[in-house]
Design a protein around this nucleic acid. Structure first.
Lengths: 238, 238
DNA sequence: CGTGCGAACCATTTAAGGATTGGTTCATCT
DNA sequence: AGATGAACCAATCCTTAAATGGTTCGCACG
């Protein structure tokens, strides 16, 4: 490809082609459970572009909030987990799915409210990107990653260190547990549409800086999740 | 030593000699900054006792609370550090009094609501007892301690492991900070009466299992604290 | 037979070294 | 001047061996 078009105005075209290729890769699913992309050296060979050119595409996607990168670790889709979550999980007692959901219902509406107070234009653009990704992804595992990323971004933009750590603990517990049952992910198209609508409502309330609206829509979303969880995990209490 | 007294009633005497030797070592200083003792194998040679005998002495000292041991790590004088300590310190570096209060306003009303669902008779007795103690204590520092105990009890009775961990971190950050200004504690009799009234309202709502009431009264209490805090720490945001 | 002892084995933590991965710089080419 | 590939740098991870406390086993002695 590069050899075929070396003398054309290759720079803008080639860069946008690479960007499109990486987008396709991100959208295509089939990545590891942690959403890890191939390393830069492999990916540049795979996409037939120099590493430097690839990095420029990755820079753009990172700015959009669709990927995160860490030197020595790799490149991953979505938003990064807060490292304090793992630490917090070490000192926390065991939690079951119902108590995790209960904690989410207490915490995340408040985070959404704070996020609505503090979100800037760039944050909102990223949230919209993530909602789009959730919507457009067909495989359940990727949808889960994008979904988790949206919630991570909201928690981060909320801007409170202690609450962020609390959220990170929830995030760490949720992603480390094997009670992610297959049924939990087999979402009917109906349900998926409803979730997406709820995500859009949350982000819309945040965009309007509507604190109460954000709190209410997040609570609504999590209540629905809670209902579905209880159908799978009956129990008298968390 | 053992060779010199093999035929006497050596067991109790030898054991107490070993115990005394280890005590001397503990009291003598000259250990590392982290209070680490030599490993058991070295120490048994040093004190001319078998490892098994040494372990019996160490068992006794551990039971007395003078040392702590961890497999793979070593034996240390004193008590183990609080596992929350590192994480709380990290959070503290990013937090300020306003953000701590903000987190309290988000978290503690929810804890009070869960507590109202789950409190048993014994819990209520303890809560009333603590409220009485806060009321009856004349010095500000003690009142602060009882106050903290009440909030901790509420968080515990709420019964959610994740939220409990979040609260514990919040508590650790709060109590470790030097922002505990003396003015913060010099509460006028007027204000103290109001706080006590609020504490009673909270516990009363909890006793009635009035979830919304508990949430509202806790929020009211913390909002007043927040107001007073803002008077001391002006700032546009947490 | 019961108890103590040393040796051996087991389980957890730590440290070190090499491999992997992203971040940056340098030299060369267009 | 900008793009490119190669080389170098810095951070993270993984593996392995060593260090350390926890426990068991076999033997000796009273």
């Amino acid at each position: 490809m590069r050899a075929a078009v070396p003398s054309e105005d290759s720079s803008p075209r080639n860069a946008s082609q690479v960007l499109a290729d990486v987008r396709k890769l991100i959208a295509g699913g089939g990545l590891d459970a942690d959403g890890k992309l191939p390393n830069e050296r492999d990916l540049s060979v795979q996409l037939n572009v120099g590493r430097r050119g690839l990095r420029r595409a990755l820079d753009a996607l990172e700015a959009e909030g669709l990927i995160w990168r860490r030197q020595g670790k790799g490149t991953f889709i979505g938003q990064p987990p807060d490292p304090k979550g793992k630490l917090a999980a070490e000192i926390s007692a065991e939690a079951n799915p119902l108590s995790v959901m209960e904690a989410r219902l207490c915490l995340e509406p408040e985070l959404a409210a704070l996020c609505a107070q503090r979100a800037g234009p760039e944050d909102l653009v990223r949230m919209h990107h993530l909602v789009d990704r959730i919507d457009q992804t067909s495989d359940a595992e990727s949808a889960e990653l994008w979904d988790g990323s949206l919630h991570r971004l909201i928690a981060r933009v909320a801007g409170n260190p202690i609450l962020m750590t609390a959220f990170a603990l929830l995030d760490a517990v949720r992603t480390s547990q094997t009670w992610q049952d297959q049924r939990d992910r087999a979402r009917s198209p109906e349900l998926r549409r409803l979730y997406t609508q709820q995500h859009r409502s949350i982000v819309s309330a945040i965009a309007r800086h509507d604190t109460d609206g954000a709190r209410a829509t997040m609570r609504e979303h999590l209540s629905l999740l809670s209902l579905n969880l209880r159908a799978v995990y009956p129990g008298d209490r968390p």
